[in-house]
């Protein structure tokens, strides 16, 4: 056996990190809207956010491939701006996994926003605080368990992503070959040792992060 190639791990961690970070900034306003808006479009937006949960990753991947390729709507724009393709590149799978993990971030955050008593928000308004200040100083600190859940689930979900990445990114070493795809190609090449090691690391990491999430959630909800 050759020495173990660690690039898929770094790539996966990098992908999960950026996906989670982007989702956090995207998820907070989106969940805020879903939790508090009385607009008649809320149901439609909610359905669109949940779509990646029910759609086969291949379907999502197929449409993303169409949108992100050089002739596609987003891909063409990207190519004009940066002179680079999206498909089969890191940026492409990043966009894909942001969309794929969207419900993992938005659902806990929406539930969190709804769980903050309306009185606290109104109290903050009558104490002269703007909506923004109320969000930062009152709402988010009182739903930190939900924020943590969203962060951990998005991270873990991106970690285990396979179908969408394969469809959009293919299997390019150092660019799009994340751990889950590396496992797939190792098995295809009958390299079971590598598959074992990769799988075990992924399994242990997932168990660890989810346990940490539930321990912290329990501790915070007891406060």
């Amino acid at each position: 056996m050759n020495s173990l190639d660690l690039t898929p791990f770094w790539l996966t961690l990098e992908l999960s990190f950026w996906t989670t970070l982007i989702l956090l900034f995207l998820g907070i306003p989106l969940a805020y809207f879903l939790a508090y808006s009385r607009s008649r479009y809320t149901s439609l937006v909610e359905a669109l956010v949940s779509l990646p949960l029910v759609l086969p990753p291949t379907v999502l991947g197929f449409y993303l491939l169409l949108a992100l390729n050089k002739e596609g709507f987003i891909g063409a724009l990207w190519y004009r701006l940066f002179g680079k393709q999206l498909v089969f590149h890191f940026e492409g799978i990043l966009i894909a996994s942001v969309i794929y993990s969207l419900p993992m971030m938005v659902h806990p955050l929406t539930a969190g926003f709804r769980s903050v008593p309306k009185n606290l928000i109104e109290a903050s308004y009558t104490l002269g605080k703007s909506k923004w200040e109320t969000l930062i100083k009152v709402i988010l600190p009182n739903m930190k368990a939900s924020v943590l859940t969203g962060v951990v689930l998005s991270f873990a979900h991106t970690l285990g992503e396979f179908g969408v990445v394969l469809m959009v990114g293919g299997n390019i070493e150092g660019e799009t070959r994340v751990v889950s795809i590396a496992i797939y190609s190792a098995v295809e090449a009958l390299d079971y040792t590598t598959a074992h090691v990769y799988s075990l690391v992924l399994l242990l990491f997932s168990v660890f992060s989810l346990t940490a999430l539930y321990v912290l959630n329990r501790r915070w909800s007891l406060l």
């Binding site: 008593p117 109290a123 903050s124 308004y125 009558t126 002269g128 605080k129 009152v138 009182n142």
Partner: peptide, 20 residues
């Protein structure tokens, strides 16, 4: 005027203190 601009003090029945 929104509540922020009204300069009222409002005391709620169930206190509404900020737990954080």
């Amino acid at each position: 005027l929104p509540p922020q601009k009204r300069d009222v003090g409002f005391v709620f029945q169930d206190y509404a203190l900020f737990p954080n």
